[in-house]
Structures are given as structure tokens and as C-alpha cells.
Write a protein that binds this DNA or RNA. Structure first.
Lengths: 221, 221
DNA sequence: TCACATTCTCAGGGTCCTCACAGCGTTCGC
DNA sequence: GCGAACGCTGTGAGGACCCTGAGAATGTGA
């Protein structure tokens, strides 16, 4: 099992390396963000331990760029308690687990093994946007700790928006994907359902996830 | 496989050249920025090794100008540890990888091979002009770190100008492309929307992106 | 069969965009 | 330096566009 450790504090990285090797892992270490990104992209690791505070390029950025290349190697992020970034960000970007420094070595090992057991997901199982999470398999939606009940249509719409997060989507596009390829009705039905979604996923939380692009369609942040 | 090496320190450039030839590459060397830019633009290389510190024109500038001509040859940048520019800049400008001097020759070779395997990246989706960026898919516009809100018409106009960057465009041409092929109204509407755009993308930033060509039309730098 | 949830249609109302127009400033030719 | 052509911009009307509440139609479970 190959592990990549991206960590700039050399003594700490060295301790980790030795410990993991003792456990039978094969370990590579990178000390900067770009170095880590390159290794993660080119090497074939089974799991990556990624510090958030890194020189030159943050772990945050490394993870983002790695996922942008469609590589879904499990990543365990190390976050400082008082850091600029937190767990929400980590999950948002596609981290599979995280640990807050300082942590016990035993816990790290346990989490690593858990990640390895799980294996690399073909693609992230859960779709997220900020603290909004949608699990297509379980057909559940959560914001923060709260579960949200959606009807089938609402769920389909939200899933589509999440899968194309950040893209501007026309009502027509939405209709053909969420409704039917040859749907003949009025586009207004999309507006109506966007309204329903907003009342369930935004209004109660004071958030503003779905943007209206006048004359174009909608976009999920 | 053709490699272009742009590097001003001649002994170092020569060492690189010999090494790469020994590996079976076909190698050209340029010793200044303009020379390198010309070679990169005119020749058809599979990969370019580009030093950042160059006489006359920095590697930074060479890369920017090369990408401005819509050439997406993979570029590996060589950065000095204490340099004025860093890796973040390199990536931002469209470098595909970079190495910090001093580096091991073996590492350079490995990275070069990785770049060649990956092949030339597809043309990036975003349209840019200086620090102005427009993403057609997301329908977003940014200048520096700031997001800019545009109406549908404004967005359509800016996208058209960006796609034909550097070209002189008559109002008529603009009307038929951004408005409608058989638009019957006054050409003044173009002037009006150019005005709107300038107030949003130029005035707040003290820039001057859209030129007026009196008696002709407009041109985006 | 009834009650309820869900989907979808429709129309009213508010908001923001688009564009015409006219006056003013700028540039250019003579 | 003058006049005319050209471009810029403030104002405001009209309308396209979006949101929403009401309720009909359809589906579903008890």
C-alpha cells in the first residue's frame, strides 16, 4: 500500500514516514504544495495524507487541482485547529476524511486503514455545495446537521444542479435532463420547482445557493 | 519528440541540450526571451523548457505572449528559488509544470516525459484579456479577484469582443452577432452597451480595455 | 374509496433590462 | 478656428422575464 505524505515540517514528516513504514506502508514524502500535487498526479498512491498549511501552494489548492484532474485517490487532510480553512472546506473540495492537529498517531493509523478499506470512489459519492450535501445513493439531503425532505422532482432537480455546480444552466437544459428529453410543457415549471427548492434548502437557513441568471437560467454556487 | 530549451546561461543550456539529445530528443536552444518566443511561436515543439530569468524578456512574459497566441504547447518552467516570480505565477500563466533550480537532471527528464504523456491540454474554456477573465460555461466575469455582474446583453457583447480580441469590429458586425442577424434598430444601441461595459469592466479598475476606432467601430485589446 | 402528496398550469404582479431619443462633448476635415 | 460628423450618456417608457399563490390533475397508500 503506497502512501504519499505532503507535509512541510520536516521532523514531523519524518516521524510520520518512519511510523508508516514500520506499519508496512510504502511511503513517499513531499514538502511543498506543488511538489505534492505533482507526486499525487503522477504517482499511483492508495491514499494521500495532506497538510493544509503548506508553503507555495496550500493543501486546499493542491486538493482542488488534484480533483480537477479527475483523480479520486482518497485524501486525509490535516487541519490546524485555528487554521484559515476548516473541515467544511476540506469535505467540500473532496477530502475523504480529516484530522485536526494535534492528533494521536493511533487515530491517524485507524483513519488511514478505514480509507484504504473503503477504496477510491469512482467519483465522489456525495455531492456538496458549501454545507449542503446530497447523497444520490441514499437519496438524502442534508444542510449542516439537518435532514431535508425533498420530493422526487425536487431531488432530481437539485442533483442535476449539483452535478453541474458552477455552470450556468438554461431552463431548457434543465427540462431535458430533469424532466424529459422531449418535454413539451412550459418552462415555467422549472421556475416553480426552483422556488420549491429555495424554500426548502435556502430560506430556512438564510443561505442563497441557487442564483437566478436573468435571461439565461440558473446556477448553483 | 521536439524540445525547445529557452535558457540564457550558455554552459547550462549546452549541458541540457546534450543530455536531451542523448535521450533521443530533438533539441533547439534559444538564449533570449524574444528569440524563444519566436521559436515557440513558429516551430512546432512537443514541449518547451522555459527559464524564468532571461535577458530582454522574462520567461513569464514569453509564456504570457505565447498563450495569447492560442498555442498550448506544454511548458515546463525553471524558477530560481529566490526569484521575483514564483510557481503560483507560473501556473496562473498556463505553465504545465515547473522546477526550482537547482534540480536534478533525472527529475527534469521524468517531468518532461510526464508532460509529453499528458499531451497538449485542450484549449482552456475561459476567455481572457489581461487580468479580465470570462467563463462562458459558468457565465461569470472576473477582473483580478473581483467578480463582475453583467446582464445578458452585456455578457453577450463582452464574449463576442473577447472571442475576436484584437480585431477591429464594426457596429454592424457586432449588431448581427450579438443582437440578431436581421436587427433593424439604430446602431446607437451598440454605443450604449459599450458604455455600460466600460462602466463595469474598466472604470472601477482604471483600465482601458475597449478602444473606440472612430469611423470604424471598436476593438478589445 | 378516500385522503393526501405530488406534479404541473395559469395568471397577476413586481423587478430589472433593453432600447429609443435627445442633448452634449469630441474629433476631424477644411 | 469653424462646422459637421461621430460617439457618449442621462432619462424614461415599455416590456420581457421571473416569482408566487391558487388550484386542477394525477398518482399513491391506507
Amino acid at each position: 500500500m503506497r502512501v504519499l505524505v505532503v507535509e512541510d515540517e520536516r521532523p514531523f514528516a519524518e516521524t510520520l514516514r518512519r511510523g508508516l513504514i514500520a506499519e508496512g506502508f510504502s511511503v513517499d514524502v513531499a514538502h511543498t504544495g506543488p511538489e505534492g500535487l505533482w507526486a499525487a498526479t503522477e504517482g499511483s498512491y492508495d491514499v494521500i495524507v495532506l497538510d493544509i498549511m503548506l508553503p507555495e501552494m496550500s493543501g486546499y489548492e493542491v486538493l482542488k487541482r488534484l480533483r480537477a484532474t479527475e483523480r479520486w485517490t482518497p485524501v486525509l487532510m490535516l487541519t490546524a485547529k485555528d487554521g484559515e480553512y476548516d473541515e467544511a472546506d476540506a469535505f467540500d473540495l473532496g477530502a475523504d476524511d480529516y484530522l485536526t492537529k494535534p492528533f494521536s498517531y493511533v487515530v491517524l493509523l485507524a483513519r488511514l486503514r478505514a480509507l484504504l478499506r473503503r477504496g477510491a470512489p469512482a467519483r465522489p459519492a456525495v455531492l456538496t455545495a458549501g454545507d449542503l450535501r446530497l447523497d444520490p445513493a441514499a437519496r438524502t439531503v442534508h444542510r449542516r446537521q439537518t435532514g431535508i425532505d425533498l420530493t422526487a422532482r425536487e431531488f432530481g432537480l437539485l442533483e442535476f444542479l449539483l452535478r453541474r455546480r458552477g455552470e450556468a444552466l438554461t431552463k431548457n437544459e434543465i427540462l431535458t435532463h430533469v424532466w424529459d428529453a422531449h418535454y413539451e410543457g412550459d418552462e415555467n415549471v422549472v421556475e416553480v420547482y426552483i422556488g420549491y427548492l429555495r424554500r426548502k434548502i435556502d430560506a430556512p437557513f438564510g443561505t442563497h445557493t441557487i442564483e437566478t441568471l436573468r435571461g439565461v437560467g440558473y446556477r448553483l454556487s
